[in-house]
Simulated assay, not measured.
Amino acid sequence: MKRFLIFLLFALPLAAGAQTLSESAVEDISEKMAAKFQLRNDPALVFVTEQMSRSGSGGLEVDKTMMELGKDPAALDAALKFLYQYSDCNRQTLIANLRGMDVKSGNVFPLATYIVNKNKTEAKTLQDEKAELLRIGAIPAVTSVMVAPPANQPGVVANATAETPAGAAQPAAAAAGSTAAAAPVEDTRNWEVRSVFAMTRPDDLQTLYGKENVELRDATDLDGNYTGKAWYVYPDTENEMQVIFNADSSKTITFTHERSKWKSPFGIKPGDPIDKVNKVNARAFRVNGFEWTNGGIVDSWEGGAMDKKGVQILFRAINSGDPKLYDQFTGEKKFRSDNSGLKKLNVVVDKVVFKTYQ
């Protein structure tokens, strides 16, 4: 009997901490997040979606994920965690944001309690991460989304070339004959890769990015084999993006330039070190040996965060001048991505491919 009482003393606190959300709360918060997400200008949901993309929690088709959070418990938990992060890991701020999303009053406190309890051990990490993202400019202090087309597309007139309608008042500087340089035109292009996922035909690319910025060219796979034709957006620039519209309505999107402005799924881009990919995948993965068939291409994600998510990556070694070390990773073999020798070789992402499921 004494043992049973001791068991209860330990078991009751554990049971109290193992909180779950009611179906009503899940349905409510999922619907409210989807509604705010569709506005594309709600600061909280913009932040949450950015973090879902950056962390890979939203998968390749993050738009679809955000609209169906109730069907994906892991994605919903991630979205709630990032809402908590957006709220500076402060319970009262979180409650205010839940109310601002029009969450039903009966669900606000259960949701806040669930979110805080589930993420309280990560609170400092989340706050530090947000502060660092702000510091490096990865997220703006006032979150916003780019929705306007680029300046060379219809509907946008660059400040430097705009004509003033007849009879309209001239700017003071112009009236005074000022020779001051015109303010630089803001880059309003949509750099979200997920914008391409919903497209169904090449014309959509031309509509969004301008016909003069889209060309049909030969394409190759990661191993250099010819695969037919692909549409190139901003060809021969740092922002070049290759898009193939497959017969099954899926799309294959490839990036090969390091300094592009594109915001890609999982936040991975060419030039990223292999260690960053380890962290995004949340575990080590397996890579084919260099200088061989499929050399440097990920062979298996080993059940990590990017497993079965339509991501293919080709790596290259920048410091391959040490033959003895480099030979350990070349030939008909596979190596683990957390091998310490890879840092000495400075192995980085060479190309990254995202394949959508529809």
Rank of each mutant, 00 (worst) to 15 (best):
G296R: 06
G295S: 05
G271W: 02
K251Q: 13
T254E: 11
K251N: 05
N294D: 13
K263I: 11
K263P: 00
I274L: 15
F285R: 04
W301P: 11
F290V: 07
R286W: 09
S260R: 03
N281V: 04
K276H: 04
E258R: 11
D299C: 00
S300I: 03
F285P: 15
T293S: 13
T256F: 02
R286V: 13
E302D: 14
G289C: 07
D272N: 15
D272L: 09
G271N: 12
G267W: 09
R283C: 13
V298P: 04
K279L: 14
K269M: 09
G271V: 12
S264Q: 13
T254G: 06
D299V: 00
G295V: 08
V280N: 02
I274Q: 07
S260H: 13
P273S: 10
T256P: 00
D299G: 01
H257Y: 10
S250Q: 09
F255K: 01
I297K: 10
F285K: 04
P273F: 02
N281K: 06
I253R: 03
D299P: 00
G295W: 07
K251M: 09
H257Q: 15
R286F: 03
G267A: 05
W292D: 15
F255D: 01
S264K: 12
R259Y: 14
T293Q: 12
K263C: 01
V298C: 10
W292S: 15
N278H: 06
N278W: 04
N278Y: 02
F290R: 07
